[in-house]
Design a protein around this nucleic acid. Structure first.
Lengths: 192, 192
DNA sequence: TAAGATAATGAGTCGAGACTCATTTTCCAA
DNA sequence: TTGGAAAATGAGTCTCGACTCATTATCTTA
């Protein structure tokens, strides 16, 4: 590949990440090209479709996250990772793309990394043993989406994560339905 | 207001709810008009802007949800409401709009209703006392978003909600940061 | 029932944004 | 150096969807 082509491809990717993570996936390709300092035709030479471009930056993002997850570890690794991701989502739109375009391979990569973190946390006793990777990923994605759309402030984010972490830490497995103390006389309402 | 006008307004609202909850807010107004059986001009006579239309159905949806919340109650009311909403989100796009358009008044209404349910659950001892309404709303919105974008199956949804419910039920308040058993020698990693 | 106010109609305007391609420029191997 | 392949350029095309408005139809009330 020619040197200028390679350089432009990088520039376009960087610009696309900047634009799409801030303005969302509906930002225009022209804005990306402008920021990258290339003509629109050049952009489409490298990424024949807007979706191709989105998929490319998403792949990069997820790979980066997976790598970050891999450097973490230990009793708190999962929690730290969780917190960082949600913070990022609240500030930028980093993880949103996750929903708009799907790059199964990249998502799988991240899923595995999260699985590793989960395993270590469980070994260390920070997370109860009956939680599995899919629900952790589900929570992760949900909270990122929520933080993004809701525009949470720091306090709310903190309190919300605390609830989730408490759920991950709870000692007694709940086995598929809510377990609760026997209803006291005087409690309002009942089961419909 | 003339009788035909009133009838058409209803038809448009119903059609819009159907279309937007299934195809998302980016569905076209023409599709709404077609389903409603009116011309496009009629739609814009009633709702001068697409956003007005979105706001109108969102207001209706949220009011309906608030009302549903109000009929529930007791120890499990909050949990039942939570579960229903997330189920709906997984199937349709019901709650998504919540993010796209903002109708502060209607959201506030729903927030109050959820606050009521929370209070009752806390009185009944099903939810720990130090949880407040904003984080419950945050969790609710997050999980709906997650369920929607992730296309969860029933099992995953069940397991994910279980974790959240466990967090809401946990006996020991966590007071703003993760509390965990003292690290055992042999546990991997540590705090960065 | 007839006037006229109100509402419905739908072809047309307008702008935005994804994508194309004939032309020009740049790179690099010989 | 230079020939020609690879790449860049950007004005132009095309589609789609929100919104308009002159015309036609419908309702209502006196």
């Amino acid at each position: 590949m020619r040197a200028d082509a390679q350089r432009n491809q990088q520039r376009i990717l960087d610009a696309a990440e900047e634009v799409f993570t801030h303005r969302g996936a509906s930002a225009s390709t022209e804005e990306v090209a402008r920021l990258a300092g290339v003509a629109i035709g050049t952009l489409f030479r490298h990424f024949p479709t807007k979706d191709d471009l989105l998929a490319a930056i998403l792949k990069r993002l997820l790979a980066r996250l997976a790598q970050e997850a891999a450097t973490l570890g230990g009793a708190d690794g999962l929690h730290i990772f969780f917190r960082r991701l949600v913070e990022q989502a609240a500030a930028k739109r980093t993880v949103v793309a996750l929903a708009d375009v799907s790059v199964p391979a990249a998502v799988g990569q991240l899923g595995e990394a999260v699985g590793q973190l989960l395993g270590q946390a469980q070994t260390a006793g920070t997370v109860r043993g009956d939680v599995r990777q899919p629900e952790v990923m589900a929570l992760l994605v949900s909270l990122c989406q929520g933080a993004l759309h809701g525009g949470w402030d720091v306090q709310l984010q903190e309190r919300t994560l605390d609830v989730v972490f408490a759920g991950l830490a709870a000692q007694a497995p709940l086995a598929g339905s809510l377990r609760r103390p026997p209803p006291r006389p005087g409690a309002v309402g009942g089961r419909p």
